[in-house]
Design a protein around this nucleic acid. Structure first.
Length: 879
RNA sequence: GGAGGCAUAGCUCAGUUGGUUAGAGCGCAUGCUUGACAUGCAUGAGGUCAUAAGUUCAACUCUUAUUGUCUCCACCA
């Protein structure tokens, strides 16, 4: 590929990200090997809208999937990530209609169904690749040879197969029901597609006269314009104040029509006036009441929510105009008793925001109860599990209360329902293939005009994309898929429907784990939205900071299921990390003379090598266990901390002496360990930051043609050099302590001082560590002995875990300040000692706490006591 | 009305079976062109882990209640 090339001086991702991605594609790394016998790991992408544009939500979703997919691929799984797009019925149709209206002043009806659909397909072809290309920019390792579309031939065949199967089982039926109607989109909506929003409104109290008397009942309503469709007034049969009215006849004001008073316990005693107008054709509850009492359904509106002939003189008016006019007339005629402000929740269309109108209509439904039962069971028995687990509650809540699913849409863009009507004999035929004549009487048939809910086809995505209804190799290998990654906002829309569809049609769950993430919000915590204009464009971020930085920013500090904020600071921090890694790699690279990285034998390793290898091994364990538990953010921050704080800030510094000694054995050992650990970091990091890791990997000696198909690191107990690691920590702590003291004394780094180290652990402070003190603790020279007797008048005493260090700073020392510091130290130690003694004298603690904990506390106590003695000693000398 | 999340440093957030002196990034302060990196290095200030009880030898962590905040579901006409 790019054999051991030099790394440019500055990290500029734009210069290599596209090139690398293209190379991966050309090499076919994203396509699984068909001959592989390794266990499968498969994921299907939540298909974005085909004409949509990439937003931060997608970016997060794709990043998380790609992390899992690349991780598993590197672990040797036969890994497949199926990409594709969704035709997004309403959303796409609205866009095309809008475009048509603005540019040509036409409606879809002007064009007719066929011509209009041609336009939509044109639109799809024009914009369909945009989102795909945007996904590629992110680095997504999808198998593009398997790209699918919910309306491609295969998916369409799956839709028909499912429809006919369900129909034959009696699980799909056509019925006259009350549904949610969007007067703007002119289609039915499922319950899930309605969003409830609080809106200010009024409670209008209206008199309904009782026939043959001067009396009246008072009905309170938020929707007076529906009174033209009232076919009863209901009261609760248990309501003492109201039960005498049952059976009486009322006269509808303005309309003059007679309606009965009926008894139904749907009416809540004590709420409102106790009388409820019943409009079966325009309210879901009233519809049910109407069914119980056999009431007539009077629809008073047209499909565009203007009033029809039943509204009399209000015919043709919009529902809100009618409301206004009607209320004025009621008031004028003395029927309006009072108007009470009342906020209420109004259902709106999730696509266009128009207030939906509940109305009765002929629609197609899926009978949900029989499908929901096994779907609930699958999550209950752990066959499918949610991460985090709490989201299964959401799922159960939805599934347990599920009503039949209205699947027909009065749209043109979508899968046309495969039902064929014969006008001659009245027969309806549901068929997997198109038919032109009636199988019963031979007369011509016409196909159902309605199309299916978009989610009907998305529900089949995990198996329709793998070739179902054919029994393909892909299906055998990759179904059920391993993980589904998606946001909590579409658990009901999509996840639940995939689960029952998979169980019903495949006889097997569609996936084992549902990995749920939260929403990406803006820096202020607001939802990103077009109307607020606060959306951050992921592509701009990629352009400015690189895809790796974007991915890092999205993956870090993000825990499953929780929303996250995205800000410039976050992505800058991510870019800075990439830059840090880049420069550390340049440093390693420029010191490399070897052609092959070979970890030296343990006997040849220096203490600091064993220390970094132990630390690295701990990191590997953390990353593996975190990723296995979907703790992506934890894994990534562990890599970040190791890379920056341990590898760069310490280990690289510790190797500089050996690196300067060219052509020595120590030099070669240092080179090898540096390159080995760096390569390990790159591999661990690759799933998160695929581009920069590949670019650097290629510049180092490497044994695999691409990092993305190299083996993911494994933990290796042989590299846990515990004793050496502890030794090294003591040295580092001593260096930190010296730096701290010097800084407190305001000693310039350029002022070098001799160090005296009185050791407790001779092995920690052997001659080999002297250069570290010279280099990292600004020492001029170092003298090590078991103990020292330095007169106190010109030196600072530094007590560390492992040694007492004397720092002669003569004139620089402010003795008053040093005394105050020591006094503070003394106080702190006394406090700690008190706390520990109390704890250790607690019989319960000593008896019940694990021995290791007790021993740890004892050791700590001993250490503090020793340190305290040292501090007091120093104080005594100063006084 | 039902369910759930969140509450930890000035800001944004981690904290993995309860057990060192609770962490990071950004910001802030002080000092540094230290052999790759100022997109950097070193050092530091800053937290009674929302409140109150409970369980425990031991609670940021578990339980309950309270307060604040966000979300989902249902919906009363």
């Amino acid at each position: 590929m790019y054999e051991n090339h030099e790394l440019p001086k500055t990290y500029s991702p734009a210069e290599f990200e596209d090139r690398i991605y293209q190379n991966w594609c050309e090499k076919g790394y994203f396509t699984p090997d068909p001959t592989s016998t390794a266990p499968s790991f498969s994921v299907v992408i939540p298909p974005p809208n085909v004409t949509g544009q990439l937003h931060m939500g997608h970016a997060l979703d794709e990043t998380l999937q790609d992390i899992l997919v690349r991780y598993k691929r590197m672990q040797g799984f036969n890994t497949l990530w199926v990409p594709g797009t969704d035709h997004a019925g309403i959303a796409t149709q609205i866009k095309v209609e809008e475009n048509l209206r603005v540019n040509e002043g036409l409606t879809r009806y002007d064009l007719g169904r066929e011509k209009f659909l041609e336009r939509v397909w044109d639109w799809k072809h024009q914009y369909g690749n945009r989102i795909i290309n945007q996904l590629k920019k992110l680095g997504s390792s999808c198998d593009w040879t398997r790209e699918r579309f919910t309306m491609d031939e295969g998916c369409s065949r799956a839709v028909r197969e499912v429809f006919v199967n369900l129909y034959d089982k009696g699980l799909i039926y056509r019925g006259h029901r009350i549904i949610n109607w969007c007067p703007h989109c002119l289609t039915a909506l499922s319950d899930a597609e309605v969003e409830y929003k609080d809106q200010p409104g009024n409670f209008w109290h209206i008199k309904y006269p009782i026939k043959g008397t001067d009396e009246y009942v008072v009905v309170a309503t938020t929707r007076p314009e529906t009174m033209f469709g009232d076919t009863a007034v209901a009261v609760n049969p248990e309501d003492e104040n109201m039960k005498h009215l049952i059976g009486k006849t009322l006269i509808l004001p303005v309309v003059g029509r007679e309606i009965p008073v009926i008894a139904d316990d749907y009416v809540e005693i004590g709420f409102g006036t106790g009388c409820v107008k019943i409009t079966p054709a325009h309210d879901p509850n009233d519809f049910l009441v109407g069914q119980r009492h056999n009431l007539e359904q009077i629809k008073v509106m047209n499909d565009d929510a203007t009033m029809n002939a039943y509204a009399g003189k209000y015919e043709g008016m919009d529902r809100y105009a009618c409301r206004k006019a009607l209320v004025a007339d009621l008031e004028a005629e003395g029927y309006l008793l009072k108007t009470e402000p009342h906020d209420h929740n109004v259902g709106t269309c999730y696509r266009c925001g128009t207030t939906v109108e509940p109305l009765t209509s002929d629609q197609w439904f899926v009978k949900m109860k029989p499908l929901a039962e096994p779907a609930i069971e699958a999550v209950e028995n752990g066959s499918i599990n949610f991460v985090p687990e709490r989201f299964s509650k959401n799922y159960f809540n939805w599934m347990n209360n599920i009503l039949d699913w209205c699947i027909s849409r009065q749209l043109w863009w979508g899968h046309r329902i495969p039902a064929f009507y014969c006008d001659a004999c009245g027969e309806m035929t549901v068929s997997k293939t198109d038919i032109t004549v009636c199988p019963k009487c031979g007369a011509p048939v016409r196909q159902e005009e309605d199309v299916l809910d978009t989610w009907f086809s998305s529900a089949l995505w995990p198996f329709s994309t793998l070739g179902w209804p054919d029994n393909t190799e892909d299906l055998k290998k990759y179904y059920p898929t391993s993980v589904l990654v998606t946001g909590y906002d579409i658990i009901t829309f999509w996840v639940s429907r995939m689960i029952f569809s998979g169980l019903e049609h495949m006889g097997q769950k569609p996936f084992s784990t549902v990995f749920i993430h939260g929403l990406v919000r803006d820096a202020q915590g607001r939802k990103m939205s077009k109307s607020l204009g606060n959306g951050i464009d992921p592509l701009l971020m990629i352009e400015k900071y690189g895809a790796d930085a974007l991915r890092f920013a999205l993956a870090t500090g993000n825990s499953p299921g929780n929303d996250m904020r995205f800000s410039d600071e976050k992505i800058e921090a991510a870019r800075n990390f990439a830059n840090k890694l880049w420069n550390a790699s340049r440093f390693v690279r420029m010191n490399l003379t070897i052609d092959e990285i070979k970890l030296p034998a343990a006997a040849d390793l220096a203490t600091e090598d064993k220390w970094i290898l132990s630390k690295y091994n701990t990191l590997v364990k953390t990353v593996l266990s975190s990723l296995d538990n979907f703790e992506v953010g934890v894994a990534l921050s562990a890599i970040y901390d190791f890379t920056w704080d341990i590898f760069c800030d310490w280990y690289i510094e510790l190797t500089k002496t050996r690196l300067s000694e060219k052509e020595t054995a120590g030099n070669l050992v240092a080179q090898n360990v540096l390159a080995y650990v760096l390569t390990g970091i790159l591999k661990l990091l690759h799933p998160f930051m695929p581009f920069i890791t590949e670019e650097i990997y290629q510049s180092l000696p490497h044994d695999c043609e691409s990092i993305m198909i190299s083996a993911y690191p494994k933990a290796d107990e042989a590299q846990d050099f515990t004793a050496e690691a502890e030794q090294m920590e003591r040295v580092l702590n001593a260096i930190r302590a010296i730096r701290t003291r010097r800084s407190e004394m305001n000693v310039l780094p350029s002022r070098r001082a001799k160090l005296y180290i009185a050791t407790k652990y001779n092995d920690s402070f052997c001659e080999a560590t002297v250069p570290f003190f010279v280099k990292l603790a600004s020492a001029s020279e170092v003298e090590i002995a078991e103990s020292f007797d330095i007169s106190a008048d010109n030196s600072v005493q530094i007590i560390t875990d492992a040694a007492t260090i004397y720092l002669p700073l003569a004139d620089l020392i402010d003795f008053e300040r040093e005394k105050a510091r020591l006094a503070g130290e003394e106080k702190k130690l006394v406090g700690e000692i008190e706390r520990l003694e109390k704890k250790l004298s607690n019989a319960g603690f000593v008896a019940k706490a694990p021995a290791a904990v007790v021993d740890g506390e004892k050791a700590k106590l001993a250490k503090y006591k020793e340190n305290l003695a040292g501090v007091r000693d120093a104080l005594a000398k100063l006084n």
